[in-house]
Design a protein around this nucleic acid. Structure first.
Length: 415
DNA sequence: GCACGACTTACCGTACATAC
DNA sequence: GTATGTACGGTAAGTCGTGC
């Protein structure tokens, strides 16, 4: 479509003889190189600087000052467009990952609805059948069967020898831990309640959810980072902040499992009571393994209480908690990066604490606060570790992560 | 009045599909 | 293999509105 705007209708100034009006010109490679060099030094040169550039650079001597000015304008415009394009690609990648996450969550919820509808129908039949209703005492187990069935796995149904003092026993515990952790990380074992203000979207990088019905208190967070799964696993396993509250950490045994995974037997001693969610000393089993789809799993379980694990130095009058299978599921994302699921799950023994502290132990809000604060520390650390490898620039936290952190901080303060 | 950003236009080169 | 048509991206430059 012919238009009054554009190059065809040249203004008197543009039609000046020097510009060879009507002929499309392209600058030579040498000219572009010289201009790019100047742009690298100063993207917005003054009129004086542009004139100096023409004088100093032989290949630009036949280029009009006005052309130089236009070239710099267009160059800035191009750079801005490239930046925006790059930003949109990043956002697109994040939205894709979030979409995948929501699809999985949707699938899980649909299955849950199906189970509940089935259970509801079953219960109705029971209620309309007096002979069964009056004699059957297992109604509760029927109603909750869907939830419980998912938590079960062959290792739980037929537990092998769970002796933490030998490698076979450790492997059995590790496999059980892995199965239980995976069911939590993928959201099939626990009804997760999304925390207020943590809706996924283009301006947030993660979701935090708190368990609705399970023993103890579990919190689950997920976040996207621009690192490959193996790198994320490396960071998570080596982070010193894991042991911030410890005065002693010993990795006593490292046992290969034969399927590419490893089992590490860890003994920790913490300082005086600094967190409600950790005992002062405990044994931990850490199981690291890879999955067929390229995902990596790092999960942990306390051996000190539930399994009759190795006995370490004991301190009297000491507040204890059972660390249920917790850890990280790191999934590779299309186009690079990783989606990390963080699961923390503890069961505190409220009866063992002084009366004055008991309300804190029995308050899921306080416990959820501790969990999400821990998740925040994890993600902040990951963001810090990855800052040098992302397009956001070295040493600078991405805006989405800052927003995420600020929201989390506000959420924690609300408790 | 000038410089600038945003938007637009036309030209050119390239890749690709299609017909012969 | 070659010629032709088409789509698309890159780029120089024009127009317009805005701020100083």
């Amino acid at each position: 479509m012919a238009s009054s705007r554009g190059r065809l209708r040249l203004s008197p100034r543009a039609a000046a003889p020097q510009l060879d009006a009507g002929k499309y010109v392209r600058y030579t490679a040498e000219q572009v190189d010289a201009l790019e060099l100047a742009y690298g030094e100063c993207p917005k040169p003054s009129s004086l600087r542009r004139q100096q550039l023409i004088r100093d650079c032989a290949v630009l001597t036949n280029v009009e000052p006005r052309q130089i000015k236009v070239w710099f304008q267009n160059r800035r415009c191009r750079e801005k467009q490239r930046r925006e394009s790059s930003r949109l690609q990043t956002v697109n990648r994040k939205l894709g990952a979030m979409n995948k996450l929501l699809m999985e969550e949707n699938d899980r919820l649909q299955k849950q609805v199906s189970r509940l509808v089935f259970d509801n129908g079953y219960m109705k039949n029971r209620l309309h059948s007096p002979s069964v209703a009056t004699t059957d005492t297992s109604c509760e187990s029927v109603v909750t069967s869907g939830q419980h069935k998912q938590q079960q796995n062959p290792a739980v149904l037929h537990p092998p020898q769970r002796d933490a003092n030998n490698p076979a026993g450790l492997l059995a515990i590790a496999e059980e831990t892995l199965a239980e952790f995976m069911s939590k990380a993928t959201g099939t074992a626990v009804n997760w309640v999304q925390m207020v203000g943590m809706k996924p979207g283009p301006d947030s990088v993660g979701i935090i959810a708190v368990s609705h019905n399970c023993s103890g208190v579990a919190a689950r967070a997920c976040g996207l980072v621009s690192l490959e799964p193996t790198k994320v696993a490396e960071i998570l396993k080596d982070r010193a902040s894991w042991y911030r509250d410890c005065r002693r950490v010993d990795i006593l045994h490292v046992i290969p499992t034969g399927n590419g995974g490893t089992i590490e037997l860890i003994y920790m001693q913490t300082y005086a009571l600094t967190t409600l969610a950790e005992p002062r000393d405990f044994w931990t089993l850490r199981y690291t393994s890879g999955l067929d789809d390229g995902s990596l799993v790092i999960c942990e379980r306390s051996l000190t209480h539930s399994t009759g694990g190795p006995s370490g130095p004991k301190t009297p009058d000491f507040i204890r908690a059972e660390v249920l299978p917790s850890g990280y599921l790191i999934r590779p994302c299309d186009g690079g990066g990783s989606m990390i699921y963080i699961v923390d799950h503890v069961d505190l023994n409220a009866c063992s604490v002084p009366e004055v502290l008991r309300p804190l132990y029995e308050s899921p809000k306080i416990l959820a606060q501790k969990m999400t604060a821990a998740a925040l520390r994890h993600i902040r650390q990951i963001a810090h570790e990855s800052s040098g490898e992302t397009p956001y620039g070295a040493g600078r936290q991405p805006a989405v992560l800052r927003t995420f952190s600020q929201r989390l901080s506000r959420r924690v303060e609300d408790f």
